[in-house]
Design a protein around this nucleic acid. Structure first.
Lengths: 107, 107
DNA sequence: ACATAATACTATACATAGCATAGTATAAGA
DNA sequence: TCTTATACTATGCTATGTATAGTATTATGT
């Protein structure tokens, strides 16, 4: 899938993954496996950005002697998702236009 | 609308606008007016990029003493649109996942 | 015992696309 | 004569996704 098309969506996808329960980097990648292929180099910067934005909060839990960084979604993060859903409707307008123009050609 | 979300779509939107008939910069902006707000600083670079990619061809027509640059879509440009439509289905998967996780929370 | 895979994260650097801003230049209308 | 519409070019910024590499521990396989 074209990287450009993912822009703006991956971030929100990560937020959505944290709606059910708190999670950490490695686990998030796995839980999103069926939805989208997201690599470490994409996810970790997103997590840091979202924390800076206050869309996420983090806390560390010791696991096998190392710290696992858990993230939980904030109210602001949930607002962010709602804005995305609204924006996506506008994107659908663009998509529909494109699909329509192609069909016209076929007819 | 969030600029990031438009990435990858505007370019194809311009291609789609040229499916019916050849057109030029200023006119394209107008014809896309109802679909998406695209400014000159966005459109003209797109047109040049698409011509370099060979998704568009151009020719100049004199109009009131100045040259108007008309663009027409190539076969490669039409292929490009088809790829976009496929890619968009994957994006819909992401969107559906996000919408689903939000709903779960409401229930 | 040793190698490999899985786990878990950090850091650097890059490409791309959309967009703001500014500049150039002509024609038409108030 | 001033503004608006027309039509395009050029420079530079920012955000996001991604490749690559590095670090370090645990579990598994041979």
């Amino acid at each position: 899938m074209d990287a450009q098309l993912k822009k703006g969506s991956l971030e929100v996808c990560v937020l959505a993954a944290l709606m059910k329960q708190d999670s950490y980097g490695y686990k998030i990648i796995q839980s999103l496996d069926e939805v989208v292929d997201i690599s470490e180099s994409t996810l970790y910067p997103i997590l840091r950005r979202l924390e800076q934005n206050e869309c996420l909060q983090s806390y560390s839990v010791e696991h096998n002697g190392r710290l696992r960084k858990f993230y939980s979604i904030t109210d602001k993060g949930q607002e962010r998702i709602k804005e995305y859903l609204l924006d996506f409707k506008e994107l659908m307008n663009i998509y529909n236009y494109i699909a329509r123009e192609v069909k016209k050609d076929v007819e």
